[in-house]
Design a protein around this nucleic acid. Sequence first.
DNA 1: GATCTTCTGTGAACGGTGTTCGCTGTGCGA
DNA 2: TCGCACAGCGAACACCGTTCACAGAAGATC
Lengths: 245, 245
Amino acid sequence: MYTDSGRPRSIWLRPERAGRGPAPGHDRARIAAAAVGLADGGGLDDVTMRRVAAAIGAGATALYRYVDDRDELLQLMADTALAELRFPPVTGDAHADLLALARELGTVCRRHPWLVDLLQARSPMTPRGVDYLEHALAAMQQVDAPGRAKLEAVALVTGLVAMVSRTELANGGSNGEREAAQAEYLRAVVENGEHPHLAGVVASSAPAGDGEDLLGRLLPRILSGLLTPGREPGAASRRESPRSR
Amino acid sequence: MYTDSGRPRSIWLRPERAGRGPAPGHDRARIAAAAVGLADGGGLDDVTMRRVAAAIGAGATALYRYVDDRDELLQLMADTALAELRFPPVTGDAHADLLALARELGTVCRRHPWLVDLLQARSPMTPRGVDYLEHALAAMQQVDAPGRAKLEAVALVTGLVAMVSRTELANGGSNGEREAAQAEYLRAVVENGEHPHLAGVVASSAPAGDGEDLLGRLLPRILSGLLTPGREPGAASRRESPRSR
DNA sequence: GATCTTCTGTGAACGGTGTTCGCTGTGCGA
DNA sequence: TCGCACAGCGAACACCGTTCACAGAAGATC
C-alpha cells in the first residue's frame, strides 16, 4: 500500500514499538517533551540531538532509534504543541468559530514561540495538525464554498495567526540585537526623507499598541472577503477604475 | 544618534569602505551575488561562509571583514533578490496595483525560492525592502484607511505571496522525501475515515490545478475585506447568526 | 530450555558548520 | 616618512547531524 512497498516514510505510520527486540527505554512522547522544554527555553537552535538525548538521560545517538532525522524530531515537537489545542465547540457561525480556533492557536504559539517557525516552514501534517484541519473544516461545514476555497481559508487563517504571533513576540520579547538594528535603520530611512509615504505612515500610527486585538480585527475582514460566495470583489475593483491601461 | 552612540548595528548604515587601511579586494555586491548563486543552485543550506568565500576566491574567514554575521549575509542576499523587482507603475487603482506588485514579488520568488524563507522569517528591512514597502504604500495613497491598516495590508500581501510561492514550488519542484511522507500519511488519514470533513474536501477538490492563478483569485478578495473602510464585516457576520450563544 | 534473530543503546568517528584570534602585510592620513 | 588602522589568511575551538560496528537484552522458534 505504500508507494514503494517498503517501510513507511512517515513517522506517523511507523509503529513506535517493533515487536522483536528488547523494550525501548524511552518513548516518543518523552523525547518530544524534552525537546519542547529545550525549545521553550532557548528557541529551536537549542534543540540539538545531543542536548535532547542528554535531557532524557540517553547517549548522544540513541535518538536515532526513535527518529530518522532531526526534522522528524521537529515534527514530533509540533504535534506535541498542537496537542495543547483545546478545540472550541462548533456553534454554526463559521466566522466566529474560525476566530475562536485561531485564538486558540495563538495562545499555543504564545506558549511555544518556536511553533511559529514550524507552522510557516510547511503545514505540519501531524495527527494533531490533521485534527486542527478537520475542526476548521467542520466549522465551515455550512459555508457555501468549494472545498479548495475552504482549504485555502484554513491555510490563510493559520498563516495569519503565525504572522500576528510573530509580531506579538517581537514586540513583547526581549528585543535582541537584530530588532535594534532594524529599528535603527528604519529610523534613519524615515529621517532621510526619500520615502514620504512610509514616513507618513510611521508618524501617524500609534507606537505598537499593546493590548490590541490584531486577530480579532484582521481575521473577520479577511474571512468575509474569502468566504462570501457570489460577490466577485475583484471584478468590482476592476470596474472602479476603467481609465487604467 | 545611534542608541548607544557606538558603531551602527545595521549593516545598511555602515559604510562599505572604511577610510584608513588598504582597499578591500571584494565588495558586498559580489559577495551577495555569489551567495545568491549558491542558494539558487542548492537552497539556503548551501550558503555557508566557507563556500561563499571560495566562490569569490577568498579565504574562509575573509567574509567577516564585510559582514558581522551569517545573518547579515542573508540580509544582503534578500536585498540583492529584491533589487530584481520591477515596480509596476501606480495607476490609482489600489487593488490592481497591489496585485501587480504581488505578482512581481511572486516572479522573483519563483526565481529565488530561498527568498520565501527570508521573507517569512522576518520582514527584511533592507534598502530594496523599504522601497517595496514605499511602493505599496504609494499604491494605497488614495485609500481611506488608517496607516496601521495599510501596513498590515502590505504585510498580508507579502505573506500571501510567500504562501502561494511556497505551494507553487512544492507542487512544481522535484518532490523530496518529505512531501512523499506527507502525502502517504494524508492518504492514510483519509482512508481511515475518522476525519470526514477532510476526506470530503480532499475527494471533491481537483488534483492541484497547475496553471491556475492563485494570487489573482485570493488577493482581491482579501484586499476587499481589508481595505473597505466602513462596512465592519465582523459585525455583519455576527448579526447573520444571532442564534449562537 | 536452548537457540536464533532482531532490536536497543553506545562510543568513536567523519565531515562539516559559524566564529574567534593572532599574524603578516599593505596603503592611507598625518 | 612614519605610524596605524585595516585586509586577508591559517589555525583553532566548540559545536553540529549523522554513520557505523559492536555490546547486550528480549521476544520468537524449535
